[in-house]
């Protein structure tokens, strides 16, 4: 059906294209600027302007960033916690969600309440810190992984997805003599790939971006994570971590800002690379989560 467009609608359409373009550009520009700065020479970086493209490029900032050994430690720690933590959290959350999705789970309403209550009320920063200390987890690598095992929001998404699997499938598997563990791993997990993908990505991004646990619980610099390393350079202005040993300004072609930008780009790179491919799963997850628990 084709309906004639009025002049007002045509104007609106043009207007809509322009506003949306503006939103898109404003969202992207800060990242673009950061990338542009990270490749700029000292003279280029000090110039006024939008820096859409660096006129004078150099890899000096990246060289300085990669010369710092701490970066590799921090990168390694973050990769390790992301991989281990994601596997650990996923199995814990999926197992818990599966149990709550089964009608033969005893006291299932009560256990669901026990989980949801932690979303509404928590101990807060200091009691949590004292608890972690009591558990002997201060300065331990495990403090990055164990406390993040459960996430009730993800658990609800997984439970909704398990609930959507037809009961008859479960019953016939039971009749064939399969136990719950087998039904969980061989039927329910493979049938919930979309929800699992979403939750895996959320957990992984959460691990990649987290630094508070490092800041609060871990003082050991060999266990520093990437975001913490970056925070020290970007927020606390500890660029001397990188600039040390490069006192002769005449042979260096970078400044604080280009080095900070290069550090930020290096930390964003993995997410930027996979972002276009995984974006749809995140979106799907929000929609799954908006189904009432």
């Amino acid at each position: 059906m084709k309906i004639k467009r009025t002049a007002g609608e045509k104007i609106f359409n043009v207007f809509n294209y322009i506003i949306l373009a503006f939103i898109g550009i404003v969202s992207l520009y800060p990242f673009w600027y950061t990338v542009s700065m990270s490749f700029s020479t000292l003279a280029e970086a000090s110039r006024d302007g939008l820096h859409l493209f660096p006129m004078d490029t150099t890899l000096a900032s990246y060289k300085a960033v990669f010369e710092n050994k701490d970066l590799y430690t921090a990168y390694g720690n973050t990769i390790l916690r992301t991989v281990l933590g994601t596997v650990y959290s996923l199995f814990m959350q999926a197992g818990f969600a599966y149990a709550l999705s089964r009608s033969n789970m005893p006291n299932r309403k009560f256990w669901a309440f026990v989980a949801v209550f932690t979303m509404l009320f928590n101990g807060g920063t200091i009691p949590t810190y004292l608890n972690i200390r009591n558990l002997g987890l201060l300065d331990s690598f495990w403090v990055y992984i164990l406390p993040l095992g459960m996430n009730v929001y993800n658990m609800i998404i997984l439970r909704n997805s398990f609930n959507a699997i037809p009961e008859s499938l479960y019953e016939s598997a039971k009749l064939d003599g399969a136990g719950d563990i087998r039904i969980f791993t061989q039927i329910f997990l493979p049938l919930s790939k979309a929800a699992l993908a979403t939750v895996v990505l959320w957990i992984a991004v959460g691990h990649w971006n987290s630094y508070m646990d490092n800041l609060l619980y871990v003082g050991d610099t060999t266990k520093k994570v990437l975001q913490m390393y970056m925070r020290e350079i970007v927020q606390d202005n500890k660029t001397e971590l990188i600039l040390s040993g490069q006192m002769d300004a005449s042979i260096t072609d970078y400044n604080d800002e280009t080095v900070k930008s290069a550090t930020i780009v290096v930390s964003m790179l993995p997410i930027l690379c996979v972002y276009p491919f995984i974006q749809k799963y995140f979106v799907k997850g929000v929609m799954l989560g908006s189904v009432k628990g």
């Binding site: 197992g95 818990f96 709550l100 256990w111 949590t128 558990l135 719950d180």
Partner: peptide, 28 residues
């Protein structure tokens, strides 16, 4: 339903150990 419990307990223990145990600290 011990198999369900095997799947359920790690999550419950985590909630108790980290979320609920932290709440005791509120006493201070």
């Amino acid at each position: 339903n011990w198999q369900l419990l095997v799947l359920f307990l790690p999550g419950l223990i985590t909630l108790i150990l980290f979320s609920y145990a932290s709440m005791f600290g509120l006493l201070i």
